[in-house]
Design a protein around this nucleic acid. Structure first.
Lengths: 143, 143
DNA sequence: ATAACTAGGTTACTTTTAGTAACTCAAAGG
DNA sequence: CCTTTGAGTTACTAAAAGTAACCTAGTTAT
């Protein structure tokens, strides 16, 4: 149970990594994984996608109240960038007061499914990570 | 091919999301997915994990030259935080000039496998995202 | 013997990005 | 005519990412 990657897997993994990393020269221009991860590196994007995943449509203030701690500006900025990438769609109804409904696009739902897979791994391993952090903290103390 | 999530899946997904989001109150304290994603939200962590995945051990400057564009400080900071979380291990040899070897821990290799899965999705869908961005850019122009 | 090189960092500084608080719009209700 | 409502902006501050120059201590080259 010590080794996660066995030698037979290693070669295939190395090939895959090479493809993911693209050639060294143009990491910034073509690397899809960087692009995708940059998308939810900021903490609000994940919550926004997950929250929108629960109900098919949500209005701005419904989202704001369900995503605990987000400010208006941060939610606006997050939604705009998700919309820009085609992960979230925004429907504006010309009413007063205004009504705007947000929902995941099919592409956004696809990403949601990936996030949930990652969440499964996270749930299984979070304790190992927390333990490691604690050990590291103790080591720091001594130094 | 339009709809990614069919109704039969919807309920299971909603349940999963609820678990992932934890209760609204303690998002900051317990949410594993936030913790995991926060880990490679910064752009260098992904590259570091992927690069370490290719070879079992790498020295500081080998890493630095393989991760195109990273500065010494950023690599140091990134490696320290990965080490803190138990994803990367750091072996120091008391020589002059110093030798320090970095490698993925089993936990880190587990995360690597997850990242590669995500990369598969990213590769399949990056064009849709780039197209959406272009459309959005054009819409902006008109406004 | 001193200048430059090495590996693996730090320190001090600058630029981006995240985040907060207060303001806007236009109509409806009191 | 003053407040409320929903969905945002604007102007500002705090925090994070990133850069450039420096450090250490022993080895080789001049």
């Amino acid at each position: 149970m010590e080794v996660t990657i066995v030698d037979s897997q290693r070669l295939a993994i190395q090939k895959k990594i090479d493809k993911v990393l693209c050639s060294k020269a143009d990491v910034t221009s073509c690397c899809p994984i960087k692009d995708i991860l940059a998308r939810f590196g900021d903490k609000w994007s994940i919550y926004t996608i997950l929250t929108l995943g629960k109900e098919e449509k949500l209005r701005f203030n419904e989202l704001k109240s369900q995503i605990n701690g987000v400010s208006q500006r941060m939610l606006t900025v997050t939604l705009r960038s998700l919309e820009e990438d085609g992960l979230v769609s925004r429907a504006v109804y010309a009413e007063i007061p205004p009504r705007v409904e947000y929902s995941l696009t099919p592409l956004g739902e696809g990403l949601l499914l990936q996030l949930l897979q990652l969440a499964d791994w996270a749930k299984l391993n979070i304790n190992q990570i927390l333990d490691a952090r604690e050990r590291y903290g103790n080591k720091e103390m001594q130094a």
